[in-house]
């Protein structure tokens, strides 16, 4: 675990030296700001519930953009050889990169706290659902980032990693969303697998253990598989 901060730091340097961090943050703020303003104007309610609910789809697209280069670029440019011949474990590398991507994701969310300040100024928002929403956003982010990281481990092409990550997350998003309101044996299963329903309860002020377990277990699974994939060069 000792090398995790070192790997983390190197990824942060790389993020903020390249335009990628700024672009992702800007795109996110444009969309979330638009939703916030529109929904506030429509509902006239001092609440973040609806506008944050809408961000999930954008995050499904942006999270893989953050993570797409993490491992794939390392393999493509050959720097993996320098990295892995240093005394680091595969887990330290993968986990350090995961934390860096998650950190950037949180940095991206941070400016939305201004919305909360603004709501407090214009009205009296219920602070409970807002706090639970941010807990939910962080948990969801760790899952999105880990899925993106896994895709990045699977290919040495950044673009492929990004696209497969986006497709996976969007499918997971619609899996539960599409069947809501219908009936059938598959509804519960798809709603459980899908990301939408787990997220929805957070926006309503609920921190349900089932949802927390869902996000954390998928995160752990993806990181575990990514470590195995990085390790797999040793069995080939």
């Amino acid at each position: 675990m000792n090398n995790v901060p070192t790997v983390f730091k190197r990824e942060m340097i790389s993020y903020f030296y390249s335009p990628i961090a700024y672009i992702v943050i800007a795109v996110f703020l444009v969309f979330s700001g638009y939703f916030f303003a529109r929904i506030l104007a429509l509902t006239q309610q001092a609440t973040l519930t609806y506008s944050l609910a809408n961000t999930q789809f954008i995050l499904s697209i942006l999270a893989p953009v953050i993570t797409m280069k993490l491992l794939s670029e390392e393999v493509r440019s050959g720097t993996i050889e320098m990295l892995m011949t240093a005394p680091v474990t595969d887990f330290e590398v993968v986990f350090g990169k995961f934390l860096a991507a998650l950190f950037l994701y949180l940095v991206m969310l941070a400016p939305t706290l201004l919305y909360v300040v603004f709501l407090n100024w214009v009205g009296k928002p219920d602070i409970g659902p807002i706090i639970s929403s941010y807990i939910g956003l962080a948990l969801m982010g760790s899952m999105f980032v880990s899925v993106g990281l896994l895709m990045s481990a699977l290919t040495k092409n950044q673009v492929v990693a990004g696209v497969t990550g986006i497709v996976t997350l969007v499918i997971l998003f619609f899996a539960g969303y599409a069947v809501s309101g219908t009936e059938g044996w598959y509804v519960a299963a798809l709603q459980y697998i899908g990301t939408y329903d787990h997220w929805e309860s957070f926006t309503k002020g609920l921190v349900d253990t089932r949802d927390v377990v869902y996000y954390i277990s998928i995160t752990a699974l993806c990181i575990f598989i990514a470590v195995r994939i990085v390790e797999s060069r040793k069995w080939r």
Binding site: N3, T6, V7, K9, R10, I13, S14, Y17, S18, S77, G78, T79, I80, E81, M82, L83, T85, A86, P87, V88
Partner: peptide
């Protein structure tokens, strides 16, 4: 390594600092 793969986005002393910490 033969191809000398380096992180092209870092500065020389940053890179060496990273490597020193890693090692």
């Amino acid at each position: 390594p033969e191809s000398v793969p380096l992180y092209l986005d870092m500065r020389v002393n940053e890179y060496l600092l990273f490597r020193a910490q890693l090692k």
